[in-house]
């Protein structure tokens, strides 16, 4: 019993292969998906996607949001943007978070504020993830 996982972003295919378990940051909380999961359709929030494989090291990706579709043996992660966790630069992530905070402080109308909040959420999620990854090593 294995899952087939497709991780795509608008810029291309990131990962396609089998997994024993997939953990995704869904909009209403993290979900872990094992084979024979009930069909699920949900949005994702900025955060990490972890793909666990049998006998191999876990793969970690960062996605900035998107859509997750689960069929009993098929998981499709359609990310707005996705990058390998190892490729994230901690300094750049920190800087992006600061910039997002500044934008939020300066934003005046409602659209600006909500956009700045979304950016900040993404930057914060990315930073948390990269920190966790570094600490684990």
């Amino acid at each position: 019993m294995k899952l087939h996982v497709d991780l795509v972003s608008a810029e291309g295919q990131i990962y396609s292969g089998s997994a024993t378990m997939v953990v995704v940051a869904a909009e209403e909380g993290d979900v872990g998906i094992a084979p024979r999961h009930a069909p699920l359709l949900t949005r994702m929030r900025p955060g990490q996607v972890r793909i666990q494989q049998e006998g191999e090291e876990e793969l970690q990706f960062f996605v900035s949001g998107g859509i997750l579709e689960v069929q009993p043996h098929l998981v499709t992660v359609m990310a707005d943007t996705a990058e390998r966790a190892a490729d994230i630069d901690e300094a750049a992530a920190e800087k992006a978070k600061q910039r997002a905070e500044e934008n939020l402080a300066q934003a005046d109308d409602r659209v600006d504020v909500s956009r700045a909040q979304a950016e900040l959420a993404e930057a914060a999620a990315r930073l948390t993830m990269v920190k966790k990854l570094r600490a684990g090593r």
Binding site: D6, L41, I67, T76, M78
Partner: peptide
Amino acid sequence: VEASRPYAQKIRRTIGHLAQA
């Protein structure tokens, strides 16, 4: 074109599933 194709295909597949739900 090649790079943007997987996303378009996957979302079409999901929509296809959705149509059968």
